[in-house]
Design a protein around this nucleic acid. Structure first.
Lengths: 341, 341
DNA sequence: ATCAAAACTTACCGCGCGTAAAGATTTTAT
DNA sequence: ATAAAATCTTTACGCGCGGTAAGTTTTGAT
């Protein structure tokens, strides 16, 4: 019945028998009003289906309830999985998440940061492109907006970094591969997108030395974020040239490994860990699709839940008060043994 | 030098020597001012790095330059690929896209629609969840905001529907499979997420009858959007029970096919189209990962570019004037022959 | 019942911009 | 050159809400 006549908070206040400042206070923080008033307001909201104008709300507020989430590349279920988890945590904390993707383009990343700055967000969760990022733009942005960097670190920018312990990842799986067969060759992109790849290579070299094996790094060319294609093309070439000195290939990440599996298939090599198999292939990330490759991919899985939860918690702690020093948190990965290695 | 002193349009107008209403007019539509003034304004923008407050802008505008993009499920490169393309088209047209994902949850979809309604967007591109969607909520939303439905149709809601011609998809690949080997069995979810699946089944039945073969539909149980898992589990069970009466399986979509390939691998069946292979598997969608399965997946690819471009164009035509009748546009798919079938 | 604290109301101003109307200025056409 | 048209400036008001200061009412403890 009575509905769309309410055009602003004043009218809503009048019709619900409560003063406008109190209504305003309620929308800022429902717990700041007496429970009896809260119930009356909520009943009126229910009845008249009123929502305050978000633009008018955000105009004068120094800080909005917006939270920006910036991903480097959307067409990768690894990131979307994290995004889903982060989004949920933000909503639970009473914030309004907005998702952006740089789609692998540094100019777009800078544009997004620009847009975001004008949105006066309470905070931003940023997974940067990495190497290609305009670092000065990110640095400038971090000075304006409380920013938590995740997945891929950029100097000591923002309020904190949350990610995975890439050293541990690679050491864990290198150890596993060495114990269960021939020591692995390391398969990677020559110019990887982000610093995680460098950490993983360094960890591989370190682990191989520790275990007393000679490291073999196979770096393949390719730019951009089309990792599967790069892994497949580079993998075929490397296989054809006999650049893998052992029968075991540890890929820098799962998407590269998926490309490598396709390369093995194309070259007629049976992948697996049995006597009949020609080659073992392992990845790193615990990519959502890694369960469905043929054969299923042995990998090290991120602790998605821990990363996303800690990222959001750290951001909100910084927003809602305590200004602590910059810190870096890296979660350990879990070895997932499947048939590929 | 002179920079962050400019706090509003008034000050910017003063410092750039142009009246505020003209500045305002410029930001609404740069082409609405004389080219000489435009150049002066743009020089001043460049110099002082001024951007109008988006909240104050949008508060009074009846329509904003926002465009909402709603996806049913983000962790699927099929959708993110379309999203990327649509986003770009929106930006090119001078709009500000905002991306949302329902993450397979109908309540979240309704919430997103609620949020979107309060954003006064110029228009919305909505790919609904399908069967699970709250149709009344969508219908209500479509009355408030110019909405273009894509991918999966819901009645004749919104200003138009743009998607793919599922009948053609399935007929095309069914024909191909019949011509090149045994006629296909149709592999699908018992309770599929959206109406596209029903169209594809109907098309399969129709095509099989037309070609004079007896159709064989294998429906497997499973809820939600975890298609690969459903395909793998259902596929293994169906293979074990001998429910596929021929050596050819046409999957309702590529993600199901990826699960089916994993099932074949687990059951020790070699997939392919040569004499040595035990079974042929084909998908539908042209999923970004379908090139990298083992073996690479034969499928029918959406015309991504055409769908996204036509969707955006149709929306903007409706926004910027011409109110034409509701219409449905479905683009044909292209057969992609790979090794799996 | 008494009183201070907590919660609420009234009244008013400010935010940054959209928009309209009327007059002044520039551009274009004749 | 001159009139008509297009564009710009000035002035003024409104949007829907945030925020504050002063009074008033309600609450809960004594």
């Amino acid at each position: 019945m009575a509905d769309s006549k309410i055009r602003n908070m004043e009218q809503f206040a009048a019709i619900s028998g409560i003063s406008r400042p109190t209504i305003s206070k309620y929308f800022n923080d429902p717990d700041s009003v007496r429970s009896s008033t809260r119930e009356r307001i909520e009943a009126a909201i229910e009845k008249h289906d009123y929502r305050p104008n978000i633009y008018a709300m955000n105009q004068n507020r120094k800080l909005t309830k917006n939270v920006g989430i910036v991903l480097p590349f959307l067409a990768d279920p690894f990131f979307t999985e994290i995004a889903r988890s982060i989004e949920q945590h933000c909503i639970d904390a009473g914030y309004r998440p907005t998702l952006f993707s740089s789609h692998g383009d540094p100019r777009l990343e800078t544009e997004i940061l620009d847009t975001l700055a004008s949105m006066k967000p309470a905070g931003v969760l940023l997974a940067p492109l990495g190497r290609a990022s305009d670092k000065s733009a990110i640095e400038k942005f971090c000075k304006q907006v409380p920013t938590l960097i995740f997945d891929s670190s950029v100097d000591e920018l923002g309020i904190a970094f949350v990610g995975s312990d890439n050293f541990q990842f690679t050491e864990l799986i290198t150890d596993y591969l060495c114990r269960t067969g021939e020591p692995p060759c390391f398969f990677e992109m020559k110019t990887p997108a982000n610093p995680n790849a460098h950490r993983r290579r360094a960890s591989y070299l370190n682990a191989m030395e520790k275990f007393g094996y000679e490291p073999q790094v196979v770096s393949v060319p390719g730019e951009g974020w089309d990792f599967e294609a790069i892994g497949m093309q580079g993998g075929r070439a490397a296989l054809a040239d006999g650049r893998f000195k052992t029968n075991t290939v540890l890929c820098s990440n799962d998407r590269l490994a998926i490309g490598m599996l396709a390369a093995c298939y194309a070259e007629g090599l049976r992948v697996g860990r049995t006597k009949d198999d020609a080659i073992r292939v392992a990845g790193q990330d615990g990519h959502p699709f890694s369960s469905y490759t043929c054969p299923p991919l042995t990998t090290v899985a991120h602790d998605y839940q821990a990363v996303s939860q800690h990222a959001v918690e750290t951001l909100f702690q910084a927003i809602e008060g305590s200004v602590s020093d910059w810190e870096s948190t890296r979660f350990e990965g879990k070895l997932i043994m499947r048939q590929s290695a």
